[in-house]
Design a protein around this nucleic acid. Sequence first.
RNA 1: GGCGGUGUAGCUCAGUUGGUGAGAGCAUGCGGCUCAUAUCCGCAGUGUCCGGGGUUCAAGUCCCUGCACCGCCA
Length: 510
Amino acid sequence: MKETFYITTPIYYVNDVPHIGHAYTTIAADALARYHRMKGQKVFFLTGTDEHGEKVHKSATQQGVPPKELADRVVTRFQGLTPALHITNDDFIRTSEPRHYASVQALFQKSLANGDIYLGEYEGWYCTPCESYWTDLQLAEGNCPECRRPVEKRKEPSYFFRLSKYQKPLLDYYERNPKFIRPESRRNEVVSFVAGGLNDLSLSRTSLSWGIPVPGNPGHVIYVWYDALTNYLTGVGYPDGGERFDTFWPADIHLVGKDILRFHAVFWPAFLLSAGMTPPLGVFAHGWWTVEGQKMSKSLRNAVDPYEIVKIYGPDAFRYFLLREVPFGLDGDFSRKALVHRINSELANDFGNLLNRSLGMLGKYFSGTVPSPGQPGEEEQALRAKAEDILQKVDEAMEELELGRALATIWELVKAGNKYVDQTAPWALAKDPARRERLGTVLYTVLEAARICVLLSAPCIPVAAQRMWEALCCEGAVEKAVLSSAGRWGGLPEGATLARSAVVFPRIEE
RNA sequence: GGCGGUGUAGCUCAGUUGGUGAGAGCAUGCGGCUCAUAUCCGCAGUGUCCGGGGUUCAAGUCCCUGCACCGCCA
């Protein structure tokens, strides 16, 4: 097993406030980061904000404030996701920070020095009011696609990146690293895009001031995507290097939405190869959410506010729903009805109730003291084998970033636990004093199975898992537990006295 | 227009290299239990596996073709 794990979210553009899409990427990255920590790996988890570029500059101008001030205001909305969603990012990077300027300029300098970045001339259709260039194809009946006003042919000096030179190296890299782009279907799209030929990429603008200046030519501002992508290096200490950088680069996973896959799977590795750096090991593109069956749009004003959902349903329910509802990589639909349904049937009825009924019987029959299990019978052996199998299967799913499948797998054990209780009918055993040892074995077994479920679900539903972990009198924080030892059967402390805990997942009345 | 993908129970989808009567979850109906947040467990289904043709002893699984939908590119 690799000893380190570096995962990132994209940096979020401060022109917008957080919605379900941001929350989704961040939550998924968090679940993966938490899981890898529980595997005992050293993890670095980075998120942050993208603060440069035309759109931010324009919004700021409209509001009559400097762009930095706008960014300072909006960034708090993104930073607030960390406590609200119980995210465990190790750093939060803002592209307006000095450390990032140094990083972008250093990387740029490398490619400038070896000739992969050269000064040329950019030509396109320019819309003065929008301060934007458009290509022939983007034009709407010859006019600006955004404001519909006429455009003019315009030229400006620009630095270019010799992307064309990297077609072959990129295809080689994809070939050698079949899991670099996932899911598979996205990989095929990227490969055919690159195979179709690459044009050099304009890397600077003279028409904009809100950004990072080209080293040695401050009249130019570096292209926002070059600036933004480099955050993944800055976050681990580039260009100074140091322990953090040596430990974590190259990144294991850049988690992205499918709309920005090309930047991460084509441009970014090319920039890095040019600068003599190792490209990331993986880019995973997840799907998009519709809301109540409709596309999210500003005109429909149907964006889901993560803060509001968390206020109503709590962070675990929100996290669980997003991760469980859809196979990771595909699109999904967010609806209150589906959310409530999953909360009630899976969290409350299946999982919450398993713990609750077990603790209830333990209190009733053993005054809450965990008995020592006797000789395991066939049913006990079966449940234990199931738990061990599930541990393995969850690991396979998590390694493939299949978070939904991982949860579905955990729930197989939850259901097996409930079935075991019905099969062994402890309430019947309790009526016969001669079968007291058997009763103890049954309760130990079901509680132990529940403990494994808590352990495995902790990366996805950390707050609830911690409460359940404590209810089972397990030591320390569940997030600090290491799967290889804590996942071993028999970790439930014998002789401990467990109180009947408060309901962890309350049902939601519809 | 080019490349790629998908089409399986009411819904969302699994279905290894072709081979026992085609599956899971949800929803539906019926039955059982009572420890539990009226929770849990069991049983029952229903399917021209998109249409057509072909290869084979044997195809949801391979080939050809048609239709529909989706993605990427132009």
